[in-house]
Every structure is written in structure tokens, then in C-alpha cells.
């Protein structure tokens, strides 16, 4: 699973880095950033979905591509 922020839609509410500080961080102006390459570690899929469901701007995309471990 991969997470991505559509930066045009992000307005810095910070729900993603509040809920999943291991997946997202804030930049110097409070906008959300995906940490590293956006690959969701095993076991964190539910947390990733939670951030998507709580972003007021619907700026978070998740792609559920098939991984090697499946």
C-alpha cells in the first residue's frame, strides 16, 4: 500500500500527521508531507486509511497495489 498527498488540495489541517506521525510530517508551513517513499509498513494499513477518511480536503490518495508479500 502507498500513500500520497495531492499538494494542490492540502491546506495544512494536519490531520494526517496528527493521526499517523510515522507516515506523514509537516513542512515548515504546516502542509502535510509523506515521509520517505510513502510505502505503508505492514500493519499500518488501517492507520493509513484512517488519515484518508479524516482529511477535510480529501487530499490523501491510497493505492492498494499488489505487493510481493501477497
Amino acid at each position: 500500500m502507498n500513500v500520497r498527498i495531492e499538494s494542490q488540495r492540502c491546506h495544512g489541517h494536519g490531520r494526517c500527521y496528527d493521526l499517523a506521525p510515522g507516515l506523514f510530517a509537516e513542512d515548515d508551513e504546516g502542509y502535510g508531507q509523506v515521509i520517505a517513499d510513502g510505502v505503508v509498513p505492514p500493519g499500518k494499513e488501517q492507520t493509513a486509511r484512517l488519515t484518508m477518511a479524516n482529511c477535510p480536503e480529501r487530499a490523501i490518495d491510497i493505492s492498494e497495489e499488489a505487493r510481493d508479500d501477497r
Binding site: 491546506h11 484512517l50 482529511c55 477535510p56 480536503e57
Partner: peptide, 14 residues
């Protein structure tokens, strides 16, 4: 758990 509220506004004036 799912709470996409708009208490702080939406868009550029968040």
C-alpha cells in the same frame, strides 16, 4: 473514527 469536519474551514482560508 471518520470525522472529516469543517470546523476550521475548507480551502485556502483554513
Amino acid at each position: 473514527q471518520v470525522n472529516r469536519h469543517a470546523a476550521f474551514g475548507l480551502g485556502i482560508h483554513r
